[in-house]
Structures are given as structure tokens and as C-alpha cells.
Write a protein that binds this DNA or RNA. Structure first.
Lengths: 207, 207
DNA sequence: GGGTAAAGTAGAACAGGTTTCAGTATCGAA
DNA sequence: TTCGATACTGAAACCTGTTCTACTTTACCC
């Protein structure tokens, strides 16, 4: 066990152990993530091959594994990266809508369309996310926190959410996650995804 | 491409192509599924190794692949097998409860405790299920139908469900599926799973 | 029973994720 | 500037899912 540059996103989010990355290291990390996303875009999960990621980002295989201890870690980090971007974007242009339910559905559907634009990338990230085992749970958790942030933002409520609302948010997130999986495996349509999100969002305005 | 003994469950459920299996073939199939489940029980997804499944069930590797074209197919079939058993059991002892929501939560929690008894097996099956790509969608769909059957049974309603109810059932299933994943990766507790199911089930009695 | 097509067997070969190792480059502190 | 620790490189090796091949057995039809 050596210390390693495995820290999470480039953002202000919770950072854990390890010395801060040097400039060159951050650069390497970004390059790797960019390559992974590019490979995923054309070919999905299977096209992200560790040897090729390493080569294309000009890094030795061992180094790649020092940054991301598995292919799953790599793809989950990629998802984190994308979600952070999305969250920023949503903050710049928050969804309009009369009630929280509508806004939440809107925000998630916008996220959905973002993913739809690069379906192969989405496939790669989501499969990694749901295949992840305990060794990745910290990173997956981070992704969940980002989703929660998106939903809470969309609710756009001053007060902290009530217990009921927090419960509703959990179910909305479950629905989002699972709907994504079924959509990617071709078992449900965009329309169904929207309808499912709307149904779950009804829990927000309940009582 | 040759025809193959890849048909679905041993049940009366929708069967598709291929000649019916001979006695010995059914026997082989059962043996394979039994072995897979046994290996999964002690060691989870990773412990189900195709060479070992083949050897332990006294079948050549090529034959194993003729029956189940991938490890994912094998584990999804295992899940199907288990769910069929569970459904029968639930039909023998249907959940009691005043309203549909309670009964549905109860049924799913009972399923949950069933899985909890063999957590490694659960891990193997659920990971396979959510990692499955399009090539397995028929089999995954069958699993979903079984889950739906469990929920509809638990609702115990004479009339066919309304559009609202069908929408609620979908969200409940999403919640179930995703809650399972988060529980298996240690990111949520049984109590949280129950609470999530209860929240989703509230959609049933809504309006 | 004899012939044949499909199913099964044993084992090698291939592919891609992961690990390992010996050597080289880089970085931070003295 | 130099030293020691850590990071990086290149390449081979390892493991397991999957495919392939040559051969044998089985099921079925005449």
C-alpha cells in the first residue's frame, strides 16, 4: 500500500487523504479522464480498455492504475466529472416551473438529455456505477451526493427539507438511477423515463 | 449460430424458441444452476467462475456456454429461478395488511430478507442483473415481470390496476431495484431500504 | 440396426483487466 | 546541489471470461 493520487474530483467537494496533486499530476489526471470519456463515447463500456486509455493519454499502465485502481473507479470518476459539469450548468440556468415536483422532473430530464447526447458514454458510466462493489462505495457515494444536490437545487426551497421530503428525494433518486439502467438496456423509452420521474416527483408535493 | 438449449425458466412462463429439452438436458441445466448458486453463496459474483461452474456441475466448458451464453446470462437465470421460488412461497402465504401499500412493502421486505439470508448470492445476482446489457434484455425482462407479479399479487386487487397504480408500481420496482444495489454496496441499511419502499408504496394509496 | 445431425467433451487459444518488477525520472527536504 | 523517497515507465506475467477446434456420444429417423 502506497499513498496515491487517488483523490476525488477537481472540485471543492469533500477531499480525503493524500498529498495534494502537483500541477503535472492534475494534468495527467485530466488527460486520463478525457481519454476515457472519448473512448467511451465511441464504443461504450467495452471500448474503454485500460491499455488503450493508458497509451492514448500518454501514461504507463501502472500509472493509470495508480490514479484509478480499476476500470470501474475510472468510469465512476468520469461520471463524477460529468455530473459536476452538469450541476454547474443547471445552477447557471435553473429549471423554471411552478412547483418543486415539476422543477425536479425538469432538472432530471435535462440531465437525461445530456446523457442521451452521448449514449455510449452514458452506458459506460452507468454500467460502471451499478456494477461497482464496496471498494468503490466512497466514489459512488460522491456521485449520489451530486445527484442529491441537483434534486435539492431544483426543489429550490429555502428551508432545509422535511423528513417527508428527504424520503421523497431518496425515492426520486432510486427511480432516476434505475430508470437510467432500464433505458440504457433498451427496456424503456424516454417517455417512460419521464413518466416515471413525474410519478416519483409527486411524492414531493404530497401533504 | 446453432440452436441451443437456451430457453428460460423451468416454469410455465413464456417460452420461446428451440426444441424442448430432453430429460438429461433439464437435469444438466438444473445442475448448472444449482452449482452457480452454491458458488455464489460462498464468494459472490467473483466466486462464480465459469471453469469451476462447468467442472463442479460435471459439464464441459463449451456445454456450459451452450446453455448460458455468458456469466451474466447464467446469473440472471439464477435470479429468475430464485424469484420463481419466492413468488410461489408468497402465494402460499400472502402478506397480510390493511391496505395495498402495507402489503406491497411487506412482500418486498420478505423478499429482501430472503436475499439477506444469502447475501453473497444476492450480490452475485443483483450485480449481474444491473450489469446486463442489451443481449440479456429478454431474460432481464422476465425477471422484471416476476417482480411485477410479486407486487401485483401483494396489492391483491380484483380489478386490473388503474393507470395511476401502474405508474406507482413502476416506481416501486425502480426503488426496489436501486435500493437493493445500494444495500449490497453497503451504502444503505435495511431500515433505509424499508423506509424507501414505504415511501414509494405511498404512491399506491394516493388519490 | 445404420446413418446423420445435433449435443457434448477436452483442451488449447485468445482477450482484456490487473499485478508485478526492474529500472528511470521527479520532487521535496537537508 | 545532493540525497532519499516517491512516482513513472515499459514490459512481462497472471487470471478469468470467452471462443475455437478436433473428436466422441447421443438422439432421432429410415
Amino acid at each position: 500500500m502506497t499513498t496515491s493520487p487517488v483523490t476525488s474530483g477537481t472540485h471543492q467537494a469533500a477531499r480525503a487523504a493524500g498529498p495534494p496533486l502537483t500541477e503535472r499530476q492534475q494534468e495527467r489526471r485530466r488527460r486520463i479522464l478525457r481519454t476515457a470519456a472519448a473512448l467511451a463515447c465511441r464504443g461504450g463500456f467495452d471500448a474503454v480498455q485500460m491499455r488503450e486509455v493508458a497509451e492514448s493519454s500518454g501514461v504507463a499502465l501502472g500509472t493509470l492504475y495508480r490514479y484509478f485502481p480499476s476500470k470501474i473507479h475510472l468510469l465512476v470518476a468520469t461520471m463524477q466529472d460529468q455530473l459536476e459539469r452538469l450541476l454547474e450548468q443547471l445552477r447557471r440556468h435553473p429549471p423554471a416551473g411552478d412547483d418543486p415536483g415539476t422543477r425536479v422532473t425538469e432538472a432530471l430530464m435535462r440531465a437525461f438529455h445530456g446523457l442521451q447526447r452521448e449514449p455510449q458514454l452514458a452506458e459506460a458510466m452507468v454500467r460502471a456505477l451499478s456494477f461497482a462493489d464496496r471498494s468503490v462505495s466512497a466514489e459512488v457515494d460522491q456521485v449520489c451526493r451530486l445527484t442529491t444536490a441537483i434534486v435539492l437545487d431544483a426543489m429550490g426551497q429555502d428551508r432545509p427539507p422535511s423528513a417527508r421530503q428527504r424520503a421523497a428525494v431518496r425515492v426520486i433518486e432510486h427511480t432516476w438511477q434505475s430508470a437510467l439502467v432500464t433505458w440504457l438496456s433498451g427496456r424503456s423509452s424516454i417517455a417512460e423515463v419521464r413518466s416515471d420521474l413525474e410519478t416519483a416527483a409527486r411524492l414531493l408535493t404530497l401533504e
